[in-house]
Amino acid sequence: MIVFVRFNSSHGFPVEVDSDTSIFQLKEVVAKRQGVPADQLRVIFAGKELRNDWTVQNCDLDQQSIVHIVQRPWRKGQEMNATGGDDPRNAAGGCEREPQSLTRVDLSSSVLPGDSVGLAVILHTDSRKDSPPAGSPAGRSIYNSFYVYCKGPCQRVQPGKLRVQCSTCRQATLTLTQGPSCWDDVLIPNRMSGECQSPHCPGTSAEFFFKCGAHPTSDKETSVALHLIATNSRNITCITCTDVRSPVLVFQCNSRHVICLDCFHLYCVTRLNDRQFVHDPQLGYSLPCVAGCPNSLIKELHHFRILGEEQYNRYQQYGAEECVLQMGGVLCPRPGCGAGLLPEPDQRKVTCEGGNGLGCGFAFCRECKEAYHEGECSAVFEASGTTTQAYRVDERAAEQARWEAASKETIKKTTKPCPRCHVPVEKNGGCMHMKCPQPQCRLEWCWNCGCEWNRVCMGDHWFDV
């Protein structure tokens, strides 16, 4: 396979590697080409510095992935760790964990309700045991953590790749202090920090972006993250068709209702045909949960890209028209025109101005929308079919299609509260000796007794199943 190397943020060049090629071997190839010592090179990928003893497969490097290699003399205490030698983080029983690669970060837990604080980093599902597709590297999971809308060759929703760059020099040479644990960490600028490894760059702020994971991409090709779309790892039924499908869209209502993408497309087109989208002054033209839940309008309007190009163009047109109407304007009634106009409040005669090729020149009556006339309008008909009709959803289907309910059931079956801080902690095999993952707590306690870890627990039921 081919990976592209950008040395000291210059133009990239291809390097041929195998899945079992080590990072140090990659350094040696680059060092020979650039005429520099291999031990002064640092390989940066997806916000993480890659260790010498890791392989291309370990690092989730795919065909035509772009890695950054910078030349920086080692500072005291760094060289041993980078070589894969006596790194205290690798000691058996050590409590410190390697910062998780962005290629394996899962933010789907952050669609849980606000009262489930902490689960994004504490609760991990076991539903990723799908067998890898044919042709994928051994052991590589097909679980997708992110979804994007690819405006490039795909023109559809695709699995996405999370990447990070330095907000100062805009190069992907920043190593994160810690990985993101929720969508806010990724979507809110300057929320996460790190250290830029580019020479002479003092940058410390992280800037995240997404790429389409279905095809090789260049540095400049980015895609918009659709953070309401998630892999259906909890096997929730769709609120409309009641099938279990994946991926799904999880509405931001209190129940976190789930809808499959085909039904979401149908829901949007139906509402669009009836012009029953909601115009929100802050958000724009949007839709609420299909069950009509309060405070559930979709905030990231790129989710409506699921409509496809033709329907999305209609959505944008109707949204612009609705904006004009909300501002007190009118639409030209001549067939084939429909231009938005903003006449004076007491102006009865409205002319669709033909300047700049935008208007048709038609003069019409503001009251009856017919060709302009003197005197009273002959008839004014009330528009028919403008009443909002509820999208029919079966109550039982709505009850079963809740992301929140599956989460709470998982928590109930696989977790116990920490005796000190009461945060839910998952036990997935292993011994009875637990350690609270909350940095402010870190209590060592017994899963069996529910009390602080002691010699009695150690001698009596340390390794009970």
Results as ranks from 00 to 15, higher is better:
residue 241 C to Y: 01
residue 43 V to T: 03
residue 120 A to D: 15
residue 392 R to F: 10
residue 250 V to S: 02
residue 25 Q to N: 08
residue 324 V to T: 14
residue 250 V to P: 01
residue 127 S to D: 14
residue 254 N to V: 10
residue 146 F to I: 06
residue 450 G to P: 02
residue 220 K to T: 14
residue 338 G to R: 04
residue 298 I to R: 01
residue 336 G to K: 07
residue 53 D to V: 03
residue 118 G to S: 10
residue 411 I to Y: 10
residue 61 L to N: 00
residue 164 V to E: 04
residue 255 S to R: 08
residue 338 G to T: 08
residue 144 N to Y: 07
residue 382 E to S: 13
residue 137 P to E: 13
residue 205 S to K: 14
residue 301 L to D: 08
residue 181 S to C: 07
residue 242 T to F: 14
residue 4 F to M: 09
residue 306 I to K: 00
residue 411 I to G: 08
residue 372 Y to A: 10
residue 159 P to E: 06
residue 396 R to N: 10
residue 383 A to Y: 12
residue 66 I to C: 11
residue 312 Y to D: 02
residue 119 L to M: 14
residue 80 M to T: 11
residue 386 T to H: 09
residue 234 R to V: 04
residue 279 H to A: 08
residue 67 V to L: 10
residue 424 P to C: 06
residue 449 C to W: 01
residue 368 C to D: 03
residue 50 L to Q: 03
residue 420 R to V: 08
residue 140 R to D: 12
residue 180 P to R: 01
residue 342 L to S: 07
residue 300 E to T: 07
residue 83 T to F: 14
residue 341 L to P: 03
residue 404 E to S: 10
residue 236 I to C: 06
residue 109 S to Y: 05
residue 455 R to G: 15
residue 277 F to C: 02
residue 157 V to P: 06
residue 159 P to G: 05
residue 263 C to E: 01
residue 86 D to N: 12
residue 8 N to P: 01
residue 100 Q to F: 09
residue 222 T to Q: 12
residue 141 S to H: 13
residue 29 V to A: 12
residue 302 H to T: 14
residue 394 D to R: 05
residue 260 C to N: 01
residue 291 A to D: 05
residue 273 N to P: 00
residue 288 P to V: 03
residue 252 Q to V: 04
residue 78 Q to E: 15
residue 197 Q to V: 10
residue 126 D to G: 09
residue 18 D to G: 09
residue 342 L to A: 08
residue 397 A to E: 12
residue 43 V to Y: 00
residue 246 S to Q: 05
residue 91 A to M: 10
residue 323 C to W: 08
residue 165 Q to C: 09
residue 351 T to R: 15
residue 13 F to D: 03
residue 141 S to Q: 11
residue 223 S to F: 06
residue 63 Q to P: 15
residue 360 C to V: 02
residue 432 M to H: 06
residue 136 S to C: 10
residue 314 R to T: 03
residue 161 K to R: 15
residue 151 K to N: 15
residue 159 P to K: 09
residue 304 F to T: 00
residue 16 E to Q: 10
residue 39 D to H: 07
residue 461 H to A: 00
residue 122 I to G: 15
residue 257 H to Q: 02
residue 23 I to G: 00
residue 205 S to V: 15
residue 235 N to V: 04
residue 275 R to N: 02
residue 237 T to A: 14
residue 314 R to Y: 02
residue 293 C to H: 00
residue 451 C to T: 15
residue 371 A to R: 08
residue 276 Q to N: 09
residue 159 P to L: 06
residue 238 C to D: 01
residue 368 C to R: 02
residue 235 N to H: 09
residue 204 T to G: 14
residue 39 D to C: 05
residue 271 R to N: 12
residue 439 P to K: 05
residue 349 K to F: 07
residue 102 L to T: 10
residue 36 V to K: 03
residue 128 R to C: 09
residue 313 N to Y: 15
residue 332 C to T: 03
residue 381 F to N: 06
residue 450 G to Y: 03
residue 218 S to N: 11
residue 370 E to K: 04
residue 128 R to F: 12
residue 223 S to R: 04
residue 303 H to E: 01
residue 241 C to I: 00
residue 444 E to T: 11
residue 318 Y to W: 02
residue 190 N to Q: 09
residue 300 E to H: 07
residue 234 R to C: 06
residue 164 V to R: 00
